[in-house]
Design a protein around this nucleic acid. Sequence first.
DNA 1: CGGAATCCCCCCCGATACTG
DNA 2: CAGTATCGGGGGGGATTCCG
Lengths: 125, 125
Amino acid sequence: MSPEHTQHTGETCPASKREILSRIGDKWSLEIVGNLWHGPKRFNELMRSIGGISQRMLTLTLRGLERDGLISRTILPTRPPRVDYELTEMGKTLIDPVHALVTWAINNEARIHACRAKFDAAENS
Amino acid sequence: MSPEHTQHTGETCPASKREILSRIGDKWSLEIVGNLWHGPKRFNELMRSIGGISQRMLTLTLRGLERDGLISRTILPTRPPRVDYELTEMGKTLIDPVHALVTWAINNEARIHACRAKFDAAENS
DNA sequence: CGGAATCCCCCCCGATACTG
DNA sequence: CAGTATCGGGGGGGATTCCG
């Protein structure tokens, strides 16, 4: 164990890295991790707080994250049934990197939209 | 300007954040940014170093990143023609967050595959 | 060399309906 | 409440061909 910080200043890393990145870097996974970093949430809680995700995609993405060991799924034997989703220890190590990316997105959103408008105007000339 | 670090501990940020995230979080954008953080590269240079990307997707993704103001495209009037792609100033601010994510992916790849195997074995029982 | 254009397949994903 | 099942379209993306 203890993969000791794989020295990696650039290139390398063929397809497997990309596989992992597209797993956690897809449209909904980042969102779910972002919505779980305060603590556990239930299915419909996630559904509401994410907004715009279909039941199907929420289920599928949660399954994928669970399969990868990033979140845990706990069934509470209450009535009505209740299921809590929570970041695992490994999942929690994702918080910092994801948070950095989310913060970047928020801070640069306006600038990006400005660039887009400029670019589109230029090519329509 | 100067969006001064948007305080953001969790939720918030509706659809626009997701739009930006899915822009840079798609299959190829992260890869391209990762391959440019050492300096400019040419089209076919990127093609080779990324590996597995089609000409079409490289073109499309580069256009998208250029449109968003994250990379610049410079045509050198040499013979044969030569085109350099390079991170813009805003693009360079992406290096740290992306690098964090890539490092995470590399360091957790083995563990994730182990989790997957375990999960798949469990449900096939 | 660095593209643009066309064709076409696959699968992602939303909508809807049903279950425990 | 928390899912599963099924259908169907839309577009992501590969292969190929042609251009400057």
